[in-house]
Design a protein around this nucleic acid. Structure first.
Lengths: 229, 229
DNA sequence: TTGTTTTTGTGACGTATATCACACGATTTT
DNA sequence: AAAATCGTGTGATATACGTCACAAAAACAA
């Protein structure tokens, strides 16, 4: 998120914080439906942003490390309920900022306003692309989208391909793709047999990101949008 | 859309328009992927907002009549490409407003800014709920969601139930629900056999909106979000 | 009116994918 | 080292849903 905002204004944003919160691994910083008028800047640790579906499954949407802005960007909104869950995957620490303090700053500081609003629209656009992949390209598209995003966020270029240097299980990938563990397993193995990916221990190496992108018409999209953060 | 903004500021918004555009029935006012830095206020007629999926099918998201704001609310964004298609369902007329003129006004007029940003966040939230229904509750959920939204937008309370007083075919409902005409037909007929809905000519009467809402956990959501506009 | 087009209804069938069951290896705990 | 837990792999089966084919009904046009 912070790539969308200049260092100066990001510091300005952090100055608006009124407290820091420590969140233990596994705990929720916020949950969907809760009333809450804060949002948060991650200082350390890692958060998973998700929604629960009717039958109790968890759809994961983002994986957020330091400098990510989480919570909601629902400024000037009356009905301030969180749309998502934010759970710490590790012991973490965040800055909490009140919506109303952002609102005041927006009206007072137009340079900040421009960058903040830009961040907001870019965030929305990012979220939009994720839902698009889920809705318009089905389960397989959602998995491919997840792999591409993880490559953009955690990919390490090696001579062999792009190593997804993050510990994820097939179940995790399933949660990001609204599908089942078994289906992920099968699809990964067919991708492997096609030579698109391979495994190094438990981690995935992507040999042809292009193949994955082509399947979901993800041609032009810059990696600043197309990531998992 | 306009319910989120006061009459005064809505008039202010319209004053920023630099031209009016007539759009013939069936024509696109804008298409996804196109570069475009305008957005539009519908003066007359009706527009359908949609996206095309990989295999050429059309996912419909909104149905917009007079006073709706369409195009994008992507202010301060560099890469101004439309995310959606906007097609006229009838001969229509719109006001065109340049993003940059909104941006200037936002920075100059803080009363306008507050209301406009509120409209923006509410719009995001609305869009979010639509995608949520599509992703988290499957085909059936998407159909139920579409029926509920149409009830909130076009429903007429009669002694018999809520009449959806808008001409829609099963194919239209399928397009709004990312499913097939045949599936819509079957699902509508099972809803009918359960007494949830019935037909009056080609139109649908909903006898138990609650049943539909319960299926997709749509309890608290105010009809200002949960509509098709 | 008659013919044409659009919309709806329904059976048959195929595919995608969820689910269940269980095995196996790897890793962690005791 | 043994036991327990966790992640992965894979077949069998069930289900949801799309597609195809075609018929009937309704709406519209000539």
């Amino acid at each position: 998120m912070s790539q969308f905002i200049s260092k100066k204004n990001f510091e300005q944003l952090k100055k608006l914080a009124y407290k820091t919160i420590k969140v233990k691994k596994g705990m929720f910083l916020f949950q969907e439906g809760q009333i809450g008028e804060n949002f948060f800047v991650v200082l350390s640790g890692k958060f998973q942003i998700s929604k629960f579906s009717g039958d109790g499954k968890e759809l994961c949407l983002r994986l957020c490390g330091p400098n990510a802005v989480i919570g909601e960007l629902m400024i000037f909104s009356d009905n301030g309920r969180y749309l998502f869950n934010g759970r710490a995957l590790e012991d973490s620490e965040v800055l909490a900022i009140k919506n109303e303090d952002i609102e005041k700053e927006l009206l007072a500081n137009s340079e900040f306003a421009v960058e903040f609003l830009k961040m907001m629209t870019d965030h929305f656009r990012k979220q939009h692309t994720k839902f698009r992949d889920l809705v318009l390209y089905g389960k397989k598209g959602a998995l491919y989208s997840t792999l591409i995003r993880m490559a953009n966020s955690y990919g390490v270029q090696t001579k062999d391909g792009i190593l997804l240097d993050v510990p994820v299980t097939h179940q995790d990938l399933a949660n990001f793709s609204s599908t089942s563990r078994e289906s992920v397993n099968r699809e990964l193995n067919t991708l492997k047999s096609k030579g698109i990916i391979s495994f190094k221990g438990r981690k995935i190496i992507i040999h042809s990101l292009d193949y994955l992108k082509k399947q979901i018409n993800c041609e032009g999209c810059p990696s600043s949008y197309c990531n998992i953060e």
